[in-house]
Design a protein around this nucleic acid. Sequence first.
DNA 1: CAATTCCTGTTAATAGTTTAACAGGGCAAA
DNA 2: TTTGCCCTGTTAAACTATTAACAGGAATTG
Lengths: 225, 225
Amino acid sequence: MDPNKSFKHLPHKTIERLSQYRRALLICLNNGKSHIFSHEIAQIQHITSVQVRRDLMLIGYSGTLRKGYNIQELIDLIGEIIDSNEGINVAVVGMGNLGRALINYFSGKRHKLSIVAGFDTNPDKIGNYMNGVECFSVEDMHKIVKEKDITIGIITVPASQTTEICDLLVESGIKGILNYTPKPVNVPDEIYLEEYDMITTLEKVAFYVKLPDEAPETKQSKARP
Amino acid sequence: MDPNKSFKHLPHKTIERLSQYRRALLICLNNGKSHIFSHEIAQIQHITSVQVRRDLMLIGYSGTLRKGYNIQELIDLIGEIIDSNEGINVAVVGMGNLGRALINYFSGKRHKLSIVAGFDTNPDKIGNYMNGVECFSVEDMHKIVKEKDITIGIITVPASQTTEICDLLVESGIKGILNYTPKPVNVPDEIYLEEYDMITTLEKVAFYVKLPDEAPETKQSKARP
DNA sequence: CAATTCCTGTTAATAGTTTAACAGGGCAAA
DNA sequence: TTTGCCCTGTTAAACTATTAACAGGAATTG
Ligand SMILES: NC(=O)c1ccc[n+]([C@@H]2O[C@H](COP(=O)([O-])OP(=O)(O)OC[C@H]3O[C@@H](n4cnc5c(N)ncnc54)[C@H](O)[C@@H]3O)[C@@H](O)[C@H]2O)c1
Ligand SMILES: NC(=O)c1ccc[n+]([C@@H]2O[C@H](COP(=O)([O-])OP(=O)(O)OC[C@H]3O[C@@H](n4cnc5c(N)ncnc54)[C@H](O)[C@@H]3O)[C@@H](O)[C@H]2O)c1
């Protein structure tokens, strides 16, 4: 990769799509495909082929005319852009249903991202392993975060505990937080924060479902020629 | 509400934020507040107060000068816009960790949206109740969807089963689908589809965490004056 | 009762993102 | 070889979303 090339200024949305492209490409690779056309990627992601080509243009990847893109090469390039060289260690705080679902989901995936610790306050959970991930006491967070070089924390505790846990993560020296509880949090500027609440998504689906004719084109319908 | 007023053309993002505003407003109401300023809402949501006022302008709600917005009124108005009159029934397919997390999360919430059924193939789960939600066999999906007037399906089965389950939901007459598995699906145009994959979000966080100085302003940092 | 402050509501400008349009090249069939 | 087709890569235009700028009104202060 051209070392002068910087990917700092890629659009937010492109970053998200690159991650999705890779996910789809890995599946295609497993199915024995070696090349793929922009319109094939587009169909999988419910977007237009123009958008795919534009994204790939932005990251400077060229395909072969009439043959498409080399899947392996593209996977590698996306990796160079969005993965960190050293790998990033992640912790899940709150080993309940959602926390376990996330750990389950992650285990066995390659990825430069690994969940390397869980935290909980429930004594019955502390010390247990879940898919190879040990559960520690939140009291040891400081120590474990340092020891295991954890840079991202995922919050899946009950909403009432969210603020406290978020502050604890920040104090422990975490760099990014992904908050899955419905309670919004505040973090210092230098910490990257994403919040996701399923109810928002579901209410959005409900809104468009109840507007029978006027529903906006979905990504999928727009993607059709 | 002015019956001539249509909310069909509200921006996508505004719809999402309205849902989030309501969530925050309900918490404030519980804390005994009766009025709230745009900048207070903004701070909770990590956006600017201008954006809040603009969204409220779009839905035609006016606050009181120097006093802010009446929380109860605003909650009610948002409800009129994004909730459906009759209430919407939702089913979760795949009663594993994630499915259970969702059902747990929903139970006890008011809302015009209710999860009224779960589906699974595991005989040990069929017939059980989870937070008051019965688990049915996927074989009965057609029947149950009709009986319970279910219009939205949430997919939380193993990725290998996603396509099959999605098709089954479509055949059963569902109107909207929320797919939480990492396998993208295809649905007919008239069905509203949202897909969410945690890994995309996490990889995005990782991308910005690893860019130490150049990280784009987060919503939160932008929101600061 | 001015002047000040603090808030809302709106329009105009900017920024971000997607889509349209098209140039160009290779392969295939005629 | 020529024609037609199907793909990529890029620039320009359109669209969507956010932010800046400001007009104006009520409470507050001197
Ligand atoms: N974003 C979403 O889509 C979504 C979906 C479902 C649930 N949720 C939210 O995720 C959270 C967890 O849901 P769940 O179903 O896994 O709940 P759960 O009760 O199964 O799990 C919560 C876990 O957190 C632990 N815990 C409690 N206090 C703690 C603390 N101070 N520090 C560390 N651990 C603590 C508990 O021991 C438990 O193991 C809830 O806030 C819920 O609202 C979000
Ligand atoms: N989007 C996210 O953020 C996210 C996070 C975690 C997990 N996931 C995904 O969600 C899915 C479920 O994860 P999980 O941890 O709950 O898994 P799980 O194995 O705990 O649960 C899967 C459930 O689906 C049932 N099932 C299997 N085949 C079925 C079928 N054909 N019809 C109906 N039910 C069937 C199983 O009996 C089981 O109860 C997986 O695809 C996983 O990758 C997504």
